[in-house]
Design a protein around this nucleic acid. Sequence first.
RNA 1: CGGGAUGUAGCUCAGCCUGGUAGAGCACCGCGUUUGGGACGCGGGGGUCGUCGGUUCGAAUCCGGCCAUCCCGACCA
Length: 567
Amino acid sequence: MTRLSQLLLPTEREPPADAEAISHKLMVRAGLVRQLGTGLWSWLPAGWRVHQKVVQIIREEIDAIGGQEMLMPVLQPADAWRKTGRYEIDELLKLQDRKGAEMVLAMTHEECVTTHVAQVVRSYRDLPFSVYHFQTKERDEPRPRAGVLRTREFIMKDAYTFDRDEAGLDVAYEAYARAYDRIFERTGLEWYSVESDVGMMGGSGAHEYMAPCAAGENEVALAPGYAANVEIASAEPQPVDVSAPLDAPERVHTPDATTVEAVARLLDVPAGALLKAFPIVVDDGAGRAGGLVLVVVRGDHRVNEIKLANALGAPWRPAREDEIADKIGPPGFIGPVGATVPILLDEAVGDGGYVAGANERDHHLRGVQPGRDFAFERVDVRKVEAGDTVGGTPITLEPAIEVGNIFKLGTRYSVPLGATYLDVDGREQPIVMGSYGIGPARIVAAAVEQFADEKGIAWPRALAPWDVEVVALGKPGSDELAAAEGLCRELRTIGLDVLLDDRDAGPGAKFADAELLGCPLRLTVGRRSLQDGRAEAQIRRGLRSVEGGIPLEGAADAVAELWRTLP
RNA sequence: CGGGAUGUAGCUCAGCCUGGUAGAGCACCGCGUUUGGGACGCGGGGGUCGUCGGUUCGAAUCCGGCCAUCCCGACCA
């Protein structure tokens, strides 16, 4: 039992002046966390209890699938990071020790764990296995934000699997996916897993675990049976009226109409009947090096930069105005017809006569038919929009916090770091890896975001810093306080964590703080209820009062029964 | 890295335009009263006004540099 009179719980009436996100405001107001600097947060006792509840849930579920907990250092020699190419990442914090040796502060632990595995694993008999730890990550984020949602230092559960081959990785990946399902289900969060981008560094599959909430940094496309990060989402476009193609493109005068909106208005066609040309320069050695490429999407659509990079299989940048003017046409009036550069045409562009830039100042072309009037390569590079359909059902887009991810790394790290084994035939093979992250702090913040109301936080049972807060209304030394202490002892017998508000404060202050802190159940012992031999009970989620409260005689049974019904 | 904003007491802010004794509410300390929804009275403590420099007889206030923090965007293994 924790006595509030002894607890370091600095609650505030007002949120920090510059806070925006609900979780930022409430976690500070409730005395859970305090800021030290940009993106640097201390967890105060009550907040740390919540964090550790999340950690314990994760630990139990990863242990259950055979993960082995260990611990690796944050401060690491730069050497392995140079070998994997990650030394160049801007977010990586670099420093020197007193001897001048290059060191880094780890942002994840692939380099470290793979280095060890390279030394230790010799034979296919040593595989597969999985290890994990909870450890601080350091990232020199360009823009930390929203309290503990995006910080420069945070604790991550990162797990790694090591397998003989892709088939083994698939099994491990699936086991982690099921463990993650159980973890997020146990937290009480609203969550879902989505397909996600595997990034430029390869990897053959990835999922993100998302907690929807207003402060989320990611956008997720949702339809029944479909959930994907908008970074990679695909959907059927909404229909648009496109006129029939003309026998040949017709040149029309469109003075100063350099935007889709202006052209659509001038020619009285929907924006979707235009072809939007997006010139880029692809940065690879595969025949397109240094060359311009024209990406063409429907006029009412936008290019999704990540989908484009994935379609190209290479980095790219927008073309500069001089490059466009030089190779294609006057900026604002460029189009695919007659362009001498490769053309990528988005899937959402169907048959029909489109309006496109004429590659001539103040002119567009009408009745342009893809295929007939220009050659193209078909790609899916547009950003999906709310109302697009998947399997006939419209999708919605909603913001979400990424609270976890699972990733098939393959041999991305084992090859540069020499993590190999000898197979049954005595041949050397690279170990096939997976990595699996969860950010407990984000789970905490997401829970605050999802369940807060105007009074404060309303924790899910599994995460609350204490299960029950007992509010004693009397002064220190009063009958009410004595009865409240007795009640706390009762509750301990059924394994509940109890916080007792034994402060010398008015009822208003105690109730307000209890609702701010958000323990799932509040029991109040005051003069009134004491006369009846009862404690009043309020369920925090929804602020529902329990009819008649609970009897002080036999409180353990009554509360145990009530507890089972709480969210 | 671009754009915007803010730095005055522990917190939320006023004062700055128009230079002249540094303020309020809450919080805190003492005494007393009070105890079912953030009490009341009386008394009290607490601030290099982010920082460095400039202008001025005199700077929280005007000017400049720097630093810090927040928001939007870019970025995000």
